Simulated assay, not measured.
Amino acid sequence: MLGYNEQHCRIHKVLAELNTEIHKSVNQFIVDAVDYYIRSLNDESLVKEAGEPKKDAGYISREDLDSIRSELKNEVKNEIIMLLGAALGGGAARVAEGSMGRMVMETVAKETADENTEEPEDPTMMELVDNWG
């Protein structure tokens, strides 16, 4: 068997001796096998695409990851500022989303400080607020 491709020999043996009591025909067996293979690849890169090729959805670049990380960091920071603003306002104020969160938080903190004169300003808390935003 020198010079023969092992894969070809294995396939030839199966097709030549295919159990037709289980499989309808050799042709149907080949169609089923190819269909199974195509489905296992999720139709990726099997046919030529017209126009620009699609970006592979299975991979993410380092630049994409850094961008996502930066966006998440900003969203989390803004959410913390909004929650802190709401907490300082005793939950009475509705905190706006996005960049308005800082202004609302400062306004709520100022109003709370003006209304609650019995509690002095906590310099540690104000320093933390300034560092977050």
Rank of each mutant, 00 (worst) to 15 (best):
L46M: 05
L41V: 05
E118D: 14
V47K: 08
P120L: 05
I38E: 07
N42K: 13
S61H: 10
N116V: 13
S70W: 05
V104C: 09
R62K: 09
G85P: 00
V31N: 11
D43W: 10
Y59C: 03
M105A: 07
G89C: 03
E52N: 07
E111G: 03
M103P: 01
I30T: 02
N42Y: 07
G90D: 06
P120Y: 07
A109P: 00
G58D: 09
S25R: 14
S40W: 11
L128K: 14
E17P: 06
E75W: 02
S99C: 10
H12T: 13
V31I: 11
E63F: 06
G3H: 11
V95Q: 03
T117S: 15
H8V: 05
L41W: 06
N19V: 06
N19A: 09
V104H: 04
L2Q: 08
H12A: 14
V108S: 01
Y59H: 03
I80K: 07
E44L: 08
G98P: 01
V76R: 11
E97Q: 15
E49D: 12
E17H: 15
M125S: 04
K55G: 03
E21V: 06
G90S: 08
L84S: 05
S67G: 11
V31R: 13
D66S: 13
V129G: 02
D56R: 11
Y4C: 01
S45P: 01
H12F: 15
K77F: 01
N74A: 04
G133P: 02
E106Q: 10
N74Y: 04
K13P: 02
I80C: 01
M125E: 12
A50W: 14
L41D: 08
K13S: 09
I22P: 02
A93N: 01
L41Y: 10
E127A: 14
K55I: 04
M103N: 08
G91I: 09
A16N: 08
I30H: 02
K13D: 03
L46T: 03
L84G: 01
Q28H: 15
V47N: 02
T124N: 04
L46C: 00
E44Y: 08
L128V: 12
E97Y: 07
G3D: 03
S45V: 04
F29Q: 01
A113K: 09
D64A: 05
S25Y: 12
G85K: 00
A92T: 12
A92E: 09
G85D: 03
E118L: 14
E106W: 05
E115M: 03
Y36S: 02
N74R: 01
C9K: 14
L84T: 10
Y36A: 04
E119G: 01
F29P: 00
E44I: 15
E97C: 04
V14Q: 06
E119N: 11
L65R: 14
I22T: 11
N5P: 04
K55R: 05
A87V: 12
H8P: 00
K48C: 00
A93K: 07
